[in-house]
């Protein structure tokens, strides 16, 4: 189980959180103007990196607030936690290989 540092509540066990998947996916401004390719890209295609991943988390069984996080998907270690709407400061590079 991961130990996740909620920016509002501090370190809490993973079971208090809900992972919201890949971060920074903007819903198209005019969905009906999108091509099928662009719409499929928005709905279904994901980065799924082996390395650093930007994702959304919600502290559902705590403060109930959303935040963004950078996590290495090989070591599962959190690298940075930053607010919704912001961009991470860390470099998007994998820190470990298994």
């Amino acid at each position: 189980m991961l130990l996740i540092a909620c920016p509002h509540c501090g370190n809490r066990p993973e079971t208090e959180f809900r992972c919201g998947g890949q971060a920074h996916i903007a819903r198209p401004e005019a969905p009906s103007a999108q091509s099928d390719e662009a719409w499929a890209e928005y709905l279904f295609v994901r980065k799924n990196p082996r390395g650093v991943h930007a994702e959304r988390w919600c502290h559902v069984h705590g403060c109930g607030r959303w935040f963004n996080a950078l996590r290495d998907t090989v070591s599962d270690r959190f690298i940075e936690i930053y607010p919704m709407g912001a961009q991470p400061i860390s470099e998007l590079q994998s820190e470990a290989r298994a």
Partner: peptide
């Protein structure tokens, strides 16, 4: 697990 990972291990819960 609820999050994507390549760690080949999962949470005990």
């Amino acid at each position: 697990d609820q999050y994507t990972s390549y760690s080949q291990q999962g949470g005990l819960h």
